[in-house]
């Protein structure tokens, strides 16, 4: 069963790569544009640190590590789960969702595998550069265990992003346009670009227990740079799992309520 889906995903993947190569100029402009956007964000942090040496006890590279980890998680979600954003407008409202239901595979899997978003690739590479550079500058000797943990943390982070988007995207079964709800909840991740302890406590609680984006950046970073929050770093994979269990339940509930458009 699992192997069947892996094989299938590889087939979808190949098709998506073909589409990408077909529109090469758009691929390059898209990747460059979002890369440029992200660079202006990191540039902001850089200028801030031209004026101060630490921010609430965090050095420049401490913060770029948090920043880089979030970028990696976010871009995994951007590359592989981007189709969730258009579930409402492109699938449900136009009646294309029926096609997914007719296929002999999980409609959710089909929906996700249908698109590979090239715009996220530039961000992934930039996130990788920032993370590696930060770890190097912080003189952290990771070893194999450390590298494996980083991969686990980033994958968990990506899963957290995807699960939250899945929950909000499921609202497409009831409302005309789910985009604004997805966007509103998603935008909360911007808090997680910086260390949680610079904010009011309430914001920290929300980012940890309500919309837990902090598990995609702040807590994993704490495993490597001990700032007093490391006891929570290992929970990231568990948070991701729990969120997916919830998200799948919500999704099933949504699909039960689905009635096709008449057209």
């Amino acid at each position: 069963m699992l192997f069947k889906y892996i094989r299938l995903y590889i087939e979808f993947f190949k098709q998506n790569i073909k589409i990408m190569l077909e529109y090469r100029a758009d691929f390059i402009i898209g990747a460059m544009a979002s890369l440029f956007m992200q660079m202006s964000g990191i540039f902001f942090v850089w200028v801030i640190f031209k004026n101060v040496t630490t921010l609430q006890g965090w050095t420049f590279y401490d913060i770029t590590l948090v920043y880089g980890l979030l970028m990696l998680s976010k871009s995994l979600n951007h590359i592989f789960f981007d189709n969730l954003w258009v579930l409402g407008p492109q699938y449900i409202r136009q009646g294309n969702f029926d096609t997914l239901l007719l296929r002999p595979i999980s409609p959710l899997f089909h929906l996700i595998a249908n698109r590979l978003q090239q715009d996220g690739i530039g961000n992934f590479l930039l996130g990788l550069v920032i993370t590696v550079k930060s770890l190097y500058e912080l003189n952290l000797n990771l070893g194999i265990k450390g590298v494996a943990l980083i991969i686990l943390f980033v994958v968990s982070g990506g899963a957290i992003f995807a699960a939250i988007n899945l929950i909000t995207a499921t609202s497409s079964f009831w409302v005309v346009n789910s985009y604004h709800l997805i966007w509103t909840v998603y935008s909360v991740n911007e808090f997680a670009l910086y260390p949680l302890n610079i904010y009011h406590k309430a914001i920290g609680i929300i980012l940890t227990w309500v919309i837990p984006y902090a598990f995609a950046s702040f807590y994993p970073a704490n495993y490597f740079i001990h700032k007093g929050y490391e006891q929570l770093s290992f929970i990231s994979p568990i948070v991701a799992l729990v969120l997916w269990v919830i998200a799948l339940r919500v999704w099933r509930f949504g699909i039960k309520n689905y009635t096709s458009t008449g057209s």
Binding site: I48, N51, V52, L55, Q56, W183, T184, S187, V188, E190, F191, L193, Y194, I198, Y199, H200, I203
Partner: peptide
């Protein structure tokens, strides 16, 4: 409006820390 206020909140705390 929500997203823009969120940006103001983030920048507010960053500047307070700075």
């Amino acid at each position: 409006v929500f997203v823009n206020i969120l940006q103001v909140v983030i920048l507010y705390y960053i500047w307070m820390a700075v």
